[in-house]
Amino acid sequence: MRIIRAIVAGERDPDVLASLRDVRCHSSVETIRASLVGYNRDEHIFALTQSLELYDFYQKKMLECYRKLEAAISALTIRAEQQLPPLPKSRIKTKQVNAPSFDVRAALYEVLGVDLTQIHDLGPSLALKLIGECGANLRAWPSAKHFTSWLCLVQGNKISGGKLLSSRTSRSSSRAAALLRLAAVTIERSDTALGAFYRRLAARIGKQKAVTATARKIAVLFYNTLRIGMTYRDPGAVAYDEWHRGRVLANLQRHAKTLGYSLAPMRDAECVS
């Protein structure tokens, strides 16, 4: 953005413009300088100036929306009558791109009495959008199953004559469901229990179905946090893998017992052979 403003202001020297590159840019100064060498035609500078003015205008309007939103959140009644405990330490170290100008996390905590951002990949902006779509108490849904069914994140079993015809989830235009799917996509590489859950399902049933299943799990955590005040603490990917391994072994032992067998761990010599 600094390079664009400099060009509009009249700077044409490629070396000066390249020195204004953002530190987060992956391209080197030499690459950027080479891309800035050329003919600066008047019509192109005019179009760039118009685009920059539009960008600044929309940024100004977004700031006005953020101020209005902050005032609306501040006017809401705090749900908890007693003194709230201190806000937990934030998991997110850096400010998110296009995040509101005010502290959304603290504002929501004052209104809800719980910190939704403790759920991984549920940042302040995403939590605010979900609250705007679903409400602040979720009383319309008696249980998490009703809530996830409303979001169309559960299997829609179609049965005819006692035979299962299809178990695909229903299509939905719900913006809340789309936000939860977005959170599920970004959790793929995280070293969390939800990330391990996603990777396990993606390897077995494919990424598309894994996104839906992970979005449903995030929706359940979101529901339980708001409805019963649950505090989510991530056990980590290693703990989840160990839990799943224990569950698989328990199922195998139970199945072997019904067939009249018993399972025993292999000795080291047997493992090598």
Rank of each mutant, 00 (worst) to 15 (best):
R24F: 07
V111L: 11
A72Q: 14
S74V: 11
K145E: 13
Q82T: 12
W141S: 04
L116E: 03
T169C: 13
K129I: 11
W243L: 11
L180D: 00
T148W: 02
G123C: 04
L201C: 05
I78M: 12
A193V: 05
Y198I: 06
I92D: 03
K129G: 07
S28E: 04
F102H: 04
V154P: 06
A178C: 02
L165H: 10
A140F: 10
E81V: 09
K163E: 15
L259F: 07
N224I: 00
L182V: 02
K89E: 15
C25G: 01
Q83K: 10
T148C: 05
E53M: 05
A6K: 04
E133L: 05
T148P: 10
Q59E: 13
T225W: 01
L201S: 04
V23R: 15
R24E: 12
S51R: 13
P142N: 10
Y58K: 10
V248C: 08
I7L: 15
L122M: 09
L69K: 14
K60M: 12
M266H: 09
A219H: 00
R21H: 09
Y232T: 08
I92V: 12
G206L: 06
K129D: 13
L151S: 00
L249A: 09
G38M: 09
K217P: 01
L179M: 08
N224H: 12
A47P: 02
K129F: 13
K129M: 14
W141L: 03
I4V: 15
A107S: 15
Y55K: 13
I3H: 02
G135T: 04
T212D: 08
S273L: 15
S125Y: 07
K61G: 03
A269L: 09
F147C: 00
L182W: 09
K217G: 01
T169E: 08
R199E: 03
P14M: 06
H26R: 15
R200W: 09
Q83R: 07
F46Q: 13
L122C: 08
L252I: 06
T231K: 12
L69M: 12
L130Q: 04
R233I: 13
L128E: 03
K61Y: 07
K257V: 02
L259D: 02
V238T: 14
K89G: 12
P265A: 07
Y240R: 03
Y58Q: 14
S167V: 01
A144G: 06
R227N: 01
G38T: 08
A215E: 00
L194S: 03
S101E: 12
L128H: 04
P86V: 08
C134Q: 05
R227D: 03
P85S: 01
L84P: 07
G135W: 01
W150D: 15
E110M: 11
F57D: 12
C134D: 05
R79H: 10
L263Q: 02
D42M: 11
G38Y: 07
D115Y: 08
S170H: 08
K158P: 00
A203I: 03
L20W: 04
I187G: 01
D103W: 05
H120A: 10
F57C: 10
P124Q: 06
Y66C: 10
F46Y: 11
M62D: 14
